[in-house]
């Protein structure tokens, strides 16, 4: 009983329940849903697909988690993805040898440099000028897509480049490269924040910036760093996205991904008010969102109702996590024990 109570009180309980319910429902509908087969030396199947499709959102959500932990928010990630794709693909397309690995590497470095600059700019507005994060990043969110279109000349730049295509469509050791990239960065961030003091410092800045500055934490540097990291992760997500379609679509690349990423972070139990953050929670949140999208087709829900279904799941998960409901659930559990004694008849 107490074990169960502790379990339901865990902040990831409801998101994981949502994930399991979605997977179960999909499996009941389509019995082969959870099956993984080996074809052409690669792993195939819906779970692999979920993991592969999650990689872009996971990368963005990873940076977002760190930003939100410092009590900030980054709305510019979608625009940064568009710019990353635009810069990189324009450079690859204009080079004499688009298929060479050196060309691709150089173009990706340029993309990273541009996104780094954007991250520094966002961080400067928030950390140095002290502008509210939501409005500071709104600047790039609005202007960014315009800049991306300026770079591509308003066109959808397409390229044929085998090495670049590998990023999103390739497999390594039977696993999708995109998922491996996202997994690598997830592990790296988890290691750096949980095995060094950085995680605690980020949380302290999120809980009370002034107090942590007085305690000797370089709050300004930390805030600046998380915005730069967020832009860099968004840049890599932009590589994956543009590699997926082999085109830089400035209007639609990463459209609304900031909302999905923020949602994933919140579903994962990290509060928008900053402070404690959970990378595992973010991973679960991203998986819930991707599984939701995938299971909708499996469950036979009409395409028109996808957004409605998503909204309902999100609202239910958010309501279940809300302090009021948590409190009520806890109160009921406490009452549950004496009830059979008092009302025997």
């Amino acid at each position: 009983m107490t074990g169960l109570a502790q379990l339901t009180r865990h902040r990831l309980f409801w998101p994981i329940v949502a994930l399991v319910v979605l997977l179960l429902a999909s499996t009941l509908k389509s019995h082969t849903f959870l099956e993984i087969t080996v074809r052409d030396g690669h792993l195939y199947g819906a779970p692999i697909d979920i993991v592969r499709r999650s990689s872009i959102t996971l990368l963005v959500a990873l940076g977002m988690t760190l930003v939100i932990a410092t009590r900030g928010i980054d709305l510019s990630v979608g625009a940064v993805m568009a710019i990353a794709g635009a810069v990189t693909l324009t450079q690859i397309a204009s080079s004499p040898d688009p298929g060479a690995i050196s060309t691709v590497a150089l173009a990706m470095l340029t993309g990273l440099a541009v996104c780094l600059a954007i991250g520094v700019f966002n961080g400067f507005l928030v950390a140095v000028l002290g502008i509210q994060p939501i409005i500071a990043t709104l600047v790039i969110m609005t202007a960014g897509r315009g800049i991306a279109m300026l770079i591509t000349g308003g066109q959808i730049t397409t390229v044929t480049s085998a090495p670049y295509k590998t990023l999103a469509s390739g497999y390594w050791l039977g696993l999708p490269v995109a998922a491996l990239i996202a997994g690598f960065f997830f592990a790296a961030v988890a290691f750096v924040t949980r095995r060094t003091a950085l995680g605690v410092l980020i949380e302290s800045v999120g809980i009370n910036p002034t107090a942590s500055r007085l305690a000797g934490v370089r709050a300004r540097t930390i805030i600046w760093t998380v915005y730069v990291l967020c832009a860099l992760f968004a840049c890599i997500a932009g590589f994956l996205q543009s590699s997926n379609i082999m085109a830089a679509d400035s209007n639609n690349a990463g459209l609304f991904i900031e909302l999905d990423a923020i949602l994933a972070v919140v579903i994962g139990g990290t509060s928008l008010a900053g402070g404690k953050f959970s990378l595992t929670g973010t991973l679960v949140g991203v998986l819930v969102l991707t599984t939701l999208t995938l299971s909708i087709t499996v469950l036979g829900i009409p395409v028109n109702a996808v957004s409605l279904f998503k909204a309902l799941v999100v609202i239910v998960v958010c309501l279940l996590q809300s302090p009021v409901v948590q409190h009520k659930l806890r109160a009921r559990r406490r009452q549950a024990a004496p009830v059979p004694v008092e009302v025997p008849a």
């Binding site: 109702a305 996808v306 409605l308 909204a311 609202i315």
Partner: peptide, 17 residues
Amino acid sequence: FIATLAAMFLARGLCYV
């Protein structure tokens, strides 16, 4: 932010229906 985001999905979803 989250409440209005959910409402945004809800309203947009109702539109498609």
